[in-house]
Every structure is written in C-alpha cells, then in structure tokens.
C-alpha cells in the first residue's frame, strides 16, 4: 500500500490510526480486565459497609483524592512509612478506585486504625490544631451535613447488581444504620476502614 493511498482516503487513514494506537491497549489493558488477579477480591476483602460506603462518597465529593493517594507502591521507603504494597485484589470494590497519583498529603491506603476517631475529628475540623505545619484545609461543615440513608441503600442495590456481594440483610438495614449520621462520622468510619484487611506487620 502506498502512503499516497492512505493520505488521500481520510476514512481509511482514520481506521488505521485507531488500530495503531489501540495495539498497546489491546495487549496491555484488555487482558487485565479478565485476570482473576485484578478482578477477584483478595482474601478478607469485603465490599464497603453502609456507613463506610457513605463516607467514601464524602471522600470523593470533597476531592480528598486531589491530595491523597491510596496506593502504597512496592518500594522499601513506601513500606517503611505506610505498610505493605497495595495489591490489585484489595481495590476491586472501589468504583472507581481511589489510587490517585498526587501526594500533597500522605498516602491513605493503610490509614485505618493508625489514629483514633477523636484524632480524625479534631484533625478534619482544623488540621493545624494537631499538626501546626499542616497545609490541609479544614472541613468543619461535614459536622452539619447528614447522610441520606435511602440513597445509600439504593447505591448498595446498584452495586449488588454490578456484582458486589452484599447480603439482603445488609441492604435492608443500610438506611437505618446510616440515617442521621453526619458526613463527618461517615468519612471517619471510611478512613478507619482503609487497609484494615491487609494491614499486617510492616516491613522493617
């Protein structure tokens, strides 16, 4: 085929360009969508309980991912600070996952249990009360906003339809469990839940 033929047929050129730029995607991305390693949950990983699920939405809504990653990379320095590297099977229930690539603040993949609920409360209201050097903004309004329990229930039904193994009991009680909880409580519950299932001994 002469390049003249291609250059003078826009349609043909479009098809060929699309083909060329998707080769890498077909070889590197498409197979991953069908690998158990990336689509099946790691042992002990469960979908987010109702309150944590609501907290996850607060996390996304407030844009926490703009400064915090949830992806401990496989390097010694990372493990010393955060814990074992994050594996694909840990985040299969993240829709979408919150790996992130920007770290103005620290990684949060293993933050669950590192601090107390009281610490998180004081820190989210005004980080500088606890860490004078911090440049994180405060989120005091989360105390005055409340979780919509019915919405959480509907969300869990949708996620179940998408394949998250929620039990009927979990979904039925979702509204009553989360109704009346402030967004602050939900967010703290979410943060305290992060990484618990694979928060084993840190590498020395």
């Amino acid at each position: 085929m002469k390049h003249e033929t291609i250059e003078k047929n826009t349609g043909l050129m479009g098809v060929l360009i699309a083909l060329v730029i998707s080769v890498a995607g077909f070889a590197e991305i498409v197979p991953l969508m069908f690998q158990a390693q990336t689509t099946q949950p790691m042992e002990g990983i469960e979908p987010f309980p109702a309150l944590q699920l609501a907290g996850r939405d607060v996390y996304v809504k407030e844009g926490c991912y703009n400064c915090h990653s949830q992806m401990v990379r496989p390097f010694v320095s990372e493990s010393l600070r955060y814990g074992p590297p994050v594996e694909a099977g840990e985040t299969v229930y993240g829709r979408p996952f919150q790996w992130g690539s920007k770290r103005t603040g620290p990684d949060l993949a293993r933050v669950g249990g590192r601090y107390t609920d009281e610490w998180h409360l004081a820190h989210l209201i005004n980080p500088r009360d606890l860490v004078p050097e911090s440049n994180m903004p405060g989120y005091p309004w989360l105390l005055d906003k409340y979780v919509d329990g019915e919405l959480v229930e509907r969300k869990m039904r949708t996620l179940k339809w998408l394949g998250h193994p929620y039990s009927d009991a979990q979904i039925d009680e979702a509204a009553s469990v989360t109704e009346g909880a402030s967004e602050m409580e939900a967010l703290i519950a979410y943060l305290q839940y992060l990484g618990l299932a694979n928060n084993g001994r840190r590498q020395q």
Binding site: R81, Y115, E118, W119, A122, D129, L130, V131, P132, E133
Partner: peptide, 18 residues
C-alpha cells in the same frame, strides 16, 4: 517525626487531647 508527631506535635508539645 514519622510516627508520633501527627498527634504529639513535631516537638512533642502535644495538642488539646493529645
């Protein structure tokens, strides 16, 4: 600094509740 300062402060000065 890596493990304690978030609650107890970078100079160990603490904070309200810590």
């Amino acid at each position: 600094l890596n493990n304690c300062a978030t609650c107890h402060g970078s100079n160990g000065q603490g904070a309200k509740g810590f």
